Simulated scan of single mutants.
Amino acid sequence: MIDFLLNNSGEILSKSMEHLFIAAISLFFGVLIAVPLGIFLTRSKTTAKIVMAIASVLQTVPSFALLALMIPIFGVGKKPAIVSLFIYSLLPILRNTYLGIAGVNDKLIDAAKGMGMTRSQILLKVQIPMAMPVIMSGIRLSAIYVLAWTTLASYVGAGGLGDFIFNGLTNAIMPMVVWGTIPVTLMAIIVDFFFGILEDKLSPNKTSEVA
């Protein structure tokens, strides 16, 4: 087991960086789309229900099926993997953003209006800061999901640690499976810890303490 690590440390590191890159890009676009969309949906409950339903349906599509659907459009490689993982990342972020913004106490909003704040100022200075822990919780959950699902990217030629895991399983090389799995697990733990700290730092109570 140790011999395999020593002989393949460079490739393990390379696959880990590739894995992290695919997951990070997918999550980045998920946040970029889902957070503004979640905020926008708070303006219409009917639209929110429709969009949430669509996002829920997309997430129920089996990962292999979604990857297969992307191949005719994007070919093989990183593009179909990133698009599929982006789609899977949307729901937790979208749902938590919507619930976080919608759940801000009406009294706080009324007080902000009484102070003469505009709609944009209320959103930026009251609603988003108050909803930030809930939003970050959704991003944190999505990050863990995406890191785990990125292992499947190897099936469409995207690379990553899935190459080690599935090649090891196919050829019954257990050290390859183990050293494909360990970095994924470590990355998930580290990312969860990092986002947990960030979620705590961005909570209104912590922000006010620092101020």
Score class of each variant (00 low, 15 high):
L108D: 05
Y98S: 07
S89V: 07
L99M: 15
T151K: 05
V104S: 04
G159D: 02
K113F: 01
L161E: 01
I165Q: 06
M130F: 07
P133H: 00
T118E: 09
R95C: 12
G116V: 13
A158Y: 08
M176V: 02
G100M: 10
I101Q: 09
A112S: 13
A111Q: 04
K107T: 13
R95T: 14
V104W: 09
N105D: 15
D110N: 07
N105T: 10
W149C: 01
P129R: 05
P129E: 04
N167D: 12
N171Q: 12
V178I: 14
S137A: 15
A153R: 06
N96C: 13
V178L: 12
W149R: 01
G138P: 10
L94P: 15
Y155L: 15
I93H: 04
L108M: 12
A188T: 08
V104T: 06
A111K: 02
V178F: 09
I109R: 05
K113V: 00
D192F: 12
Q121F: 07
L186Y: 05
A112W: 11
D110E: 13
L161H: 04
I144E: 00
L94K: 04
A102S: 15
G100V: 10
S154L: 14
D110Q: 11
D192M: 11
M174D: 04
L161F: 07
S142V: 02
V178Q: 01
G138H: 04
Q127V: 07
I135H: 04
G159C: 11
S142C: 04
M136F: 15
L99A: 15
L161Y: 03
G168E: 00
N105G: 09
A111E: 02
V134R: 03
I165P: 10
R95A: 11
A131N: 08
V126G: 03
P92N: 00
T150R: 08
I128S: 04
M187F: 12
I109M: 06
G100I: 06
